[in-house]
């Protein structure tokens, strides 16, 4: 099949090194600063709160939205995280998840709305989302390092890229699922574009959008762990240390910490989603 040589690798490297970084480097630096500041705020806030208070907040949310069972699980999970000295690592991971998810929501939902309303936008956005979701997540890590250096910022950026598609897709789906006769009724009564969106389409799409946000959070958590390879602090780096030292115990401890965090986050956000139905 080798009919002609396609130097994609050289082209990409030349593009990145000779154009992207020299020309847009300043732009990426300012993004890096903003995201970095944001991460340190959230991390500092989560670590500033006493672990007991933070645990109580999580237990309360779990009880409120997911029932007594999950509240008990959250209590035991918090005790576990504290007892294996992973509380701080868990909060660092949570901070990356929170920041990345916020970016995903703030950027993903408007794009989702736009592509629900415009077939042209939809036909452009869909292949990009496919690309974002199917490209192996490790592949984003390389440009993320080049453009944003090591640490929390490239972790959040690559997590954002990986976790945004469900927020966009489920928003589009939620709005398209609003029955046509209901949309027709809103039009027949003389709604403006904005009234239609805020009073009819978005409220009716909220359960679907919430399911999308839940997916986004789960993907963000899994990517935040992988991003430890580019220096993201948190539970992922504990597992990574376990791998590099072939330390089974450390790997299992970090791994269980991730499971605890994942279950608590999943059940709470799912519960919030169901309450909106």
């Amino acid at each position: 099949m080798n009919y002609f040589h396609l130097p994609l690798e050289e082209w990409t490297n030349r593009f990145v090194n000779e154009w992207l970084i020299p020309v847009l480097g300043g732009f990426f630096d300012s993004i890096s600063n903003i995201v970095g500041t944001f991460i340190s705020w959230v991390t500092n806030l989560l670590l500033f709160l006493p672990a007991e208070l933070m645990a109580l907040i999580l237990i309360f949310l779990a009880w409120r939205y997911a029932g007594v069972g999950i509240a008990v699980f959250t209590f035991i999970g918090s005790l576990f995280l504290g007892s294996v000295e992973l509380w701080d690592a868990a909060m660092q991971t949570l901070a990356i998840v929170i920041v990345a998810t916020l970016f995903s929501i703030v950027i993903g939902i408007p794009i989702g709305i736009w592509s629900a309303k415009s077939p042209i936008v939809n036909s452009i956005v869909r292949p990009i989302l496919d690309f974002m979701q199917t490209l192996p997540s490790f592949v984003y890590l390389i440009p993320a390092i080049l453009l944003f250096g090591l640490g929390g910022v490239p972790a959040v950026i690559s997590t954002f890229v990986f976790a945004t598609p469900p927020a966009v897709r489920m928003t589009t789906l939620g709005i398209k699922q609003v029955p046509t006769d209901v949309v027709e009724a809103a039009r027949a009564f003389g709604s403006t574009y904005w009234q239609m969106l805020t009073k009819v389409q978005l409220p009716m799409a909220i359960p679907t959008i919430m399911a999308g946000i839940n997916q986004t959070i789960m993907l963000a958590l899994s990517m935040a762990v992988i991003a430890s390879m580019i220096g993201a602090p948190g539970l992922g780096s504990v597992v990574l240390a376990g791998i590099s030292r072939v330390n089974v115990g450390l790997g299992l401890t970090g791994g269980l910490g991730i499971v605890v965090l994942a279950i608590v986050l999943d059940r709470i956000t799912q519960g919030i989603g169901e309450k909106t139905k």
Partner: peptide
């Protein structure tokens, strides 16, 4: 112009 629809088309929320 008021309008009434076959399948009611009420706002469920």
């Amino acid at each position: 112009l008021g309008m009434v629809f076959q399948k009611f088309a009420l706002f469920p929320h």
